[in-house]
Design a binder for these strands. Sequence first.
DNA 1: CTGTATCCTCGTGGATACTG
DNA 2: CAGTATCCACGAGGATACAG
Lengths: 93, 93
Amino acid sequence: MEVLGGKWKLAIVKVLLTGTHRFAALQRALPTITPRMLTRQLRELESDRILRRTVYAEVPPRVEYDLTELGAGLAELVEWLDRWGREYRKVRA
Amino acid sequence: MEVLGGKWKLAIVKVLLTGTHRFAALQRALPTITPRMLTRQLRELESDRILRRTVYAEVPPRVEYDLTELGAGLAELVEWLDRWGREYRKVRA
DNA sequence: CTGTATCCTCGTGGATACTG
DNA sequence: CAGTATCCACGAGGATACAG
């Protein structure tokens, strides 16, 4: 939970489960996140080896994010949580 | 994550997966939790229908906590997270 | 395009002491 | 036994502006 507990962490993982994304693409996928929060959560996920950050020395700059094997192993968890969340809303309603 | 995100929530669920517990028993199972935090997390889990609180009108007072069906449905998640946590520690080491 | 820098609010969580 | 009451520190998260 220390690794996954950030407000946007699992949301980011979920997006990256659909493939490699650039910074701006993640912003589009998470419309309400601020650049500051996106950077922070990405850096933490990187240092926890959930994802990889690849910088291409180009102009304009290009940076790509994709899941490591460790991160990809979270696929089941994300699905499980999605299902449980739906069940939860049903029961609580 | 809003429901499960408290610092002690999943730990409490994990204990209750082994059966009904009283307040003091939960304290013993979670040696570093303060009574204040235990109360708060229990009340939140109760209002989210993850567990049930049963008060017996006796002296001395007796209060028992046990999982609802919704809460019991978290068993898989807890196991999954345990496994992933171990894997995580191995890979990160 | 991919971020930093600054400033600020708020809530979580902890310490400690006390109570019906 | 099963909590409350108070007080406090810290940091996560957000708003806004700016930069290489």
